[in-house]
Amino acid sequence: MIAFTGLRTALPVLFGSHVVWRGFLRSKECPRQSRKFVVSLLGIWGAESEACEWGALVVTELATNACVHTHSPVIQVVAARFRGVGYLAVVDDGPAPRKNPWAGVSAADDAVSGRGLQLVSAFSASSGRFRFGSGSLFWASHPLRD
C-alpha cells in the first residue's frame, strides 16, 4: 500500500488529530473486525447509538466489498471526525473494479447481494470514491454530536 502512505500523512492535516486507521487482513473475518473497531471507536468519541449503527452498517458494507472485489492482502479502515461530522473510509490497493460501483446499477429485487453501496449512499450524508494508483478509497460521512 505505497499510495496509502501519502494518505496517512494527509489525513491528520485535513482532519486534525481525530483520525484513526487500522489494517485488517482480507478474510471472511475482516468485515466483522472492521465493524467492531469502528463501533468501539465511535463509542469512545461519544457518538450516539444512531451514529454507531450507521458506522457498523457502512464499514461492514465497504469492508465486504473490498474483500470480495479486490485482491488486497490488507484492507485499511479509516475513521475521522471533524466539526461534528464522522467520516469512514475503506482503502484497498486494487485491482480496482472495472465498473464504477457508484453508477447506480440496481440489484434484482430477489437478489441477496449487490446493494451494499446503495445502502451506504442512502444512510450517509455524503459518500464517494477516490482512486489512487491501482487502489480505491470508498468513504461516507454522517453527523456526530461533539
Score class of each variant (00 low, 15 high):
16 G>N: 00
114 G>A: 02
31 P>V: 03
135 G>C: 02
127 S>W: 01
54 W>A: 04
138 F>G: 07
123 F>G: 10
142 H>I: 10
30 C>P: 00
112 V>D: 06
134 S>Q: 15
100 N>F: 00
6 G>D: 11
143 P>T: 05
102 W>N: 12
117 L>H: 03
89 A>K: 01
13 V>K: 14
71 H>M: 15
57 L>H: 05
22 R>E: 05
51 A>V: 14
53 E>P: 07
7 L>I: 04
57 L>R: 02
37 F>E: 08
11 L>W: 03
109 D>H: 13
86 G>H: 06
102 W>A: 12
15 F>G: 08
126 S>F: 00
73 P>T: 02
76 Q>D: 10
10 A>T: 08
48 E>I: 10
33 Q>K: 15
8 R>N: 06
26 R>C: 11
30 C>L: 13
123 F>S: 09
122 A>C: 03
100 N>E: 12
20 V>A: 03
87 Y>E: 05
134 S>C: 12
120 V>E: 09
3 A>V: 13
132 F>G: 10
56 A>K: 06
22 R>S: 11
109 D>K: 14
132 F>W: 05
21 W>R: 04
122 A>Y: 00
26 R>L: 07
59 V>E: 06
19 V>D: 07
29 E>M: 13
76 Q>T: 13
9 T>Q: 15
64 T>R: 12
55 G>N: 04
20 V>Q: 01
125 A>Q: 13
86 G>S: 10
115 R>D: 09
123 F>H: 13
25 L>G: 08
61 E>M: 07
113 S>Y: 08
87 Y>T: 13
127 S>L: 05
17 S>F: 03
74 V>K: 05
31 P>W: 04
31 P>F: 11
69 H>N: 07
26 R>G: 09
18 H>Y: 11
98 R>S: 14
82 F>G: 05
143 P>D: 06
51 A>G: 04
28 K>W: 04
133 G>W: 03
13 V>S: 10
75 I>N: 06
116 G>Y: 01
40 S>P: 03
13 V>W: 09
118 Q>T: 11
81 R>S: 07
20 V>N: 02
17 S>A: 12
49 S>Y: 12
30 C>I: 04
74 V>R: 02
16 G>Y: 04
46 G>M: 03
64 T>P: 09
144 L>W: 05
10 A>Q: 11
110 D>L: 15
144 L>Y: 08
66 A>N: 00
26 R>A: 14
87 Y>L: 15
63 A>R: 01
24 F>C: 06
42 L>M: 10
131 R>G: 14
3 A>D: 12
11 L>N: 08
15 F>N: 02
35 R>Y: 01
45 W>E: 00
25 L>D: 12
24 F>Q: 05
31 P>M: 00
142 H>Y: 15
128 G>Y: 04
86 G>Y: 01
124 S>E: 06
20 V>G: 08
104 G>M: 07
49 S>A: 15
116 G>L: 05
97 P>D: 11
97 P>H: 09
64 T>L: 10
40 S>R: 13
20 V>H: 07
30 C>D: 03
26 R>P: 00
84 G>P: 03
88 L>P: 01
96 A>I: 04
107 A>S: 10
10 A>D: 07
131 R>L: 12
17 S>V: 05
59 V>N: 11
